[in-house]
Structures are given as C-alpha cells and as structure tokens.
Write a protein that binds this DNA or RNA. Sequence first.
DNA 1: TGGTTATTGG
Length: 750
Amino acid sequence: MRWTCEYLMHPHLLSPSNLTRNLINTYKFAFLHIQHSSLVNGDSTYESKMKTLHANLIKNGSLLHNLQVGNRLLNLCVESLNFGYAQKLFDEMLYRDVRTWTIQLSGFARVGSFSSALDCFRRMQNECVWPNNFTLSSVLKCCSSLYELRIGKSVHGWIVTSGIGLDVALENSILDLYVKCEAFDYAKKLFELMEDRDNVSWNIMVGAYLHIGEVEKSLCLFERLPEKGVASWNTIIDGLMKNGFQGIALELLYRMIISGHVFNKVTFSIALNLASSLSNVELGRWIHACVLTFGVQDDRFIRNSLIDMYCKCGEMEKASVLFQKVSRDFVRTRNSKTSCEAEIVSWSSMISGYVRNGEYDDAFKTFRSMVCEQVGMSKFTLTSIVSACANAGILELGRQMHAYIMKVGHKIDAHLSSSLIDMYAKCGSLDDAWNIFNQTDSLNVVQWTSMISGCALHGQGREAVKLFEHMMKKGVRPNEVTFIGVLTACSHAGLLEDGCDYFKLMKGHDLKPGFEHFACMVDLYGRAGRLNEAKEFIYNNSLSHLSAVWRSLLSSCRLHKDFAMAKWVSEKLPQHEPCDAGPYILLSNMLATEHKWEESAKVRSLMQLRGVKKHPGQSWIQLKNLVHTFVAGDRSHPQDTEIYSYLERLIGRLKEIGYSSDVQMVIQDVEEEQGEVFLSLHSEKLALVYGIISTPCGTPIQIMKNLRVCTDCHNFIKCTSKLLDREIIVRDIRRFHHFKHGRCSCGDYW
DNA sequence: TGGTTATTGG
C-alpha cells in the first residue's frame, strides 16, 4: 500500500503503457490509503497529498482522454465522498458520456445537493445526452426530496413519450415521487396502471395510505401482500406507530417475530422507537439485547435510536453511557457528512432528553460542550435548548440563545418560533413573546397556542380569549392543547361562562376532553366560588378517581374559606395518590388550621411511614450571569447575614403598613409566634430580599419558584411592592404574578 | 420503498 502511494507521488515513474486497469486500481488504493490514514491515524497532510495526487492525474493527461478511465476515477471520487475532486475531475474530462453525467448527478444527490443535481440534469439535456434509467431514478429522487412535483411530472411525461424502456424500479421511483409530493391521486392511478408490481411497489402504497392517515386501507393492502418481506413489516409497523396505533404496531411486531422474520437494521430502529413511544423500557432493553446479539450496535441509526429510547424512558444515565461511546467514535470520523449528521442527532437527543427529564443544567452543559467541540447545530438542538431556557425560566440565557440563533443565521422555523414565544412568555417577558408572534408570517396552531397559553400564564385571560377568537376567524383549527390554554385563561380570569362555552366547543372540533380539560373545568367552577357545582361536575363526569381535580377543588375551598368542604376533600386525596406528598401536606395543613395538632401529626407520620418524600420548595433569582437558589430557612448563601437582617427590618416596616403573617399556612405543630418565624423564612422571601439588596432602588425584580406561592408570601410581596415602590414578578409552578403598587395581576385568585 | 433528534399541555 505504501509503495503504491509513493509510486503515484512520482509521476515520472508512470509510463503510458501502464494506462490499464492496473493503473486505475493503483489510483484506487492510493485514494483509499490517503483517506484511511487521515481518518484513522489523524494524518493532517491529507489535503496536500490529495492535491498532489490530483495534480499528477491531470499531468498524466492521457488519463483524461480515456472515457472509461475517467468514469472509473470519477466514480471513485464520488463513492469516497471526495466531492471537490470529483467536481474538478468532471470539469477537466475531455469526453463525457451518459455514465459520466449520471455519476456526477447521483454524487450531488448523495450529498444532498439536489438542486445542483437537477442543474446537472438540465445541462445534460442541453448537451443532448440521452439519460438512462439510473439517471432518471436519481433525478426523480431529487424531485421528491425537493417536493418538485412540477419537474417530476415533466420527467414522467418525458419517460412516457421518449419510449425509453420502463422497468419496475423506474416506475417505483415515479410512484414514490407522487407519494412524497402528496399527489396521492396520481400515485393511485399509476399503481393501478402498473403491469409489473413488485414488493417495493406494494410497500410504497402501504406507506402512502399510512402517510395520509388511512390506516385501515393500509392494513388491508398489507394483508393482501402475498409475500411479506422485512421491508413490508417495517413500513406497516412504523406507519401504525406514527398514526398513534401503538397497540396494533406492537401486535404486528410480535406477529413478525413469531412468523420467523429476521430483523434488519431498520426494524431495530423502528422497534426502539415503538418502545420509547410506549415508554416501555423493558421492551427497549430487550431490543437492545437483540441489537448486541446481532452485532449491529455500531450502526449510527441504531445507536441514536437506542440513546433516544433511553432518554424518552427517563434513563439518562444509560443514554449518557451510550452517548460517550458514540462521541468517542465520532471524533475519528468527523470528515464524512453522514457521520456528522448522525453525531448531531445524538447530541440533540441527549439535550432534548435532559430537557424532557427536567435536568436543565445538564442540557446547558451538553450544549456548551457542543459549541466548544464545534459540532454543527441543527434546528432540533436549538429548539430543545430554547425550551430548556423556557422551563428553567432564565430570561438572560434565553435572550442569549435567541441572539446566538440569529448570529449563526439559522432560519427560525415554526418549531423554533413557537419555542421562542413560549420561552419569552415563561421567562416573564410577554412583550418579547408578542414581538416574535407578530413577526411570524403564517401562524400555525402551535404558535397560536403558545401565545394563548402565554397570556393565560400572565393572567391576561381576556387577551387570551380574544386571541383564541382571532385564531378561529383565521381558520386555524384549535387542538387539545389550545383548549387547555384557553380554559386555563378563563379560569384564571374568572370567565366562567366563556369557559363553559369553550368546553362545549371542543365537541364541535371533534376533540375529546382529556382529564386536563376536566381539571380546568373543576378549577373554573371552583375559583368562581361554585364549589357545589364543581363537586357535581366531578361526579357527573366520573372524575372522582383523579387526584388532580380534588386538589384543584381543595384550592378553591381554601380561596373561598369553605373549611368544611376543604376538610372533606383533603381526606379523600391521599387515598388516590398514596405516593404523592402534596395531599398529605394539604390534609395536615387543613387539620392544623383547626388546631387539631394530634390528627395533623398522624397524617405526617403516615406519610413518613409510607416513605413519601416532600418535594423541597425552591426559589431562584438571576442577577447578572448567576442564578441564586434558596430553600426555606437557607443559610448557605455567602451574604446570608445581610439577607436575614434586612428581612427582619423589612417585616417590621411592612407590619406598620398593615401586613400580618397568615398563620393558616403553617404546616407544623408550632405556636403562632414560632409559626410566624417559620413563614418568614420561605424561599421566595429570601430570594426577594436578596434581589432587593443587590439591585438599585426601583429596579424590577423577578423570582422563580418550583411550587405554588403561599398566601402569606403573596401578601408579603404585595406589601413590599407598595412599600418600596418596586415591580416584583414571581413565576410559580402554574403562573406569573405581577406585583405593583400593592396589588397582584392575579387579583388574589390563583 | 422503509428507520433516529425539536415546539404548545401534563
């Protein structure tokens, strides 16, 4: 190998008589040798060696006089993805035939330059080179990738009129073009007219029916297939899953196995995807075991599917182990385009996995390494990271990400714009959310929903309702999530009648209310003070097994001070969710308000006995580039002496303007005075005080909290906003509270 | 012919 390479570096050693098949092979070896040493041994002289090789090739001009030799070399360049050299060689070749053009054209198609491939086809036609079936297949593939139905149809027309021999493969390409371009009628007609149909033709049609959601027809077609190949099974299982028929998909996978079909690489990907969409980690693990048995664990698609499956099943550690292995391998193969794409997918999967599992810090860390290691960004990565900013509520980071996206020059597509709208809304800047919303040209249902939910989040119920009406007028169909948004808005703004109307409207849109919608309705009745109607609604709709609706009713009871019903409800709660700490705390809280300390303590010990852990309350505030997090009674902050002494003085001054601690929220068996002390140390108060002492007078302060804000803290913040004349914004787990001049945007209704 | 990653709610 080394000898051949050195030999080629000295062209004077070449004699014209060597211009034979052997020479081509020698070039082939040299090519592969240079590429191999660059990829595996990290040889940095790759570029210069290739240049030398190429120069020698050109110098030995006779090579380019021989069409056969030229074509073979061109093919070699294309196959090894050395596209720059392929282009040079193509331009320098003296003679070109249909094969030369086809190699070049399919080369463009292979690296995803479909437009260049079509240009190549046009030039070829201009030079009156008659295409063959391979050329046409490639051209049709380019058309379908570019959704170029018009060009595709003209190619079809040309094929028919030119009298070129049509074979099944070419007809299948046309069929596939029509399906991909959603010209389903054309596809159906062509399929009916086809004299020879092979398995591929049938599979394309099965896939086509699945694509347009005609699941039953696709199943019929599938069952009619006389010999079902692995590809047929793959198509039907994948399509069923994508149409939301996970159960049938799983059944078919089982049927496929027991009828003796052996999985191929595609089957593994699909099966892993099925496992994650069912959140069935056992199935996922079983498939992982099969992957290892078959020895296909190094396939990039399968690896990524494995990572994604573990991410979606919440097993981030397992995903991370696989990911580390992948990224080690990728370092060595960075040069090829396909491996780059596969690498980006695995990074994206990891980031979205961390976001999905609420591990935002890890998501940010992964993103940072991705930037440092100069891995290319995809819109998937960016969308996930914006969503991480949204959920973590870190406005400054969100803004930086937005700026980064603009700087990199990424196009803001529908997914990105909806996640940006959502991010700004969730990070407290509704104005920025509106800016993105107003700048978007054709709004889809997700973007409308993000904006509607954003308004609801900020207590702008009427604005949300207006938006919803506007959206309907524009002819955009609301989905289930849109209704959750608009119902929440009605509930937060106390718009009982509108809420009931919208709930009824769901039927008109063929949408079945889920438990979230029912919970919104219970909330709506409850907040409006219609506690009995809320209770009736629960029983009339058989919702009594859902703890979410009882919890919502309980909050309303507290709001309207109906202690009798509150106690009745809070006793029901732990039965439904024995592992959730919330109901126990609420119940013991209710008992404590009636000074029934013993019973309250019993509930607490029952909770301990069952090993239920309380979710610790946390509040955080971002100042400059740092996020400061506090828990109740936190003494770990470096400025804690300052914080505590300011807090004490502040409470004293607030009392002078009428603030008093709301001891009803005390959840421990303590005396009032002690209770007051305990309340004063809630995490949001600490975060607020830290914000006050760290910023100039009059600066608005924004705090985030992972639980709902309690009545006492709500009161405390209201009074503080009045006393210090500061705008204070608090995001709790459900909504935003904008405090100004002693009032809150929620109207004390949350 | 078929396979992996993203947005609104929970």
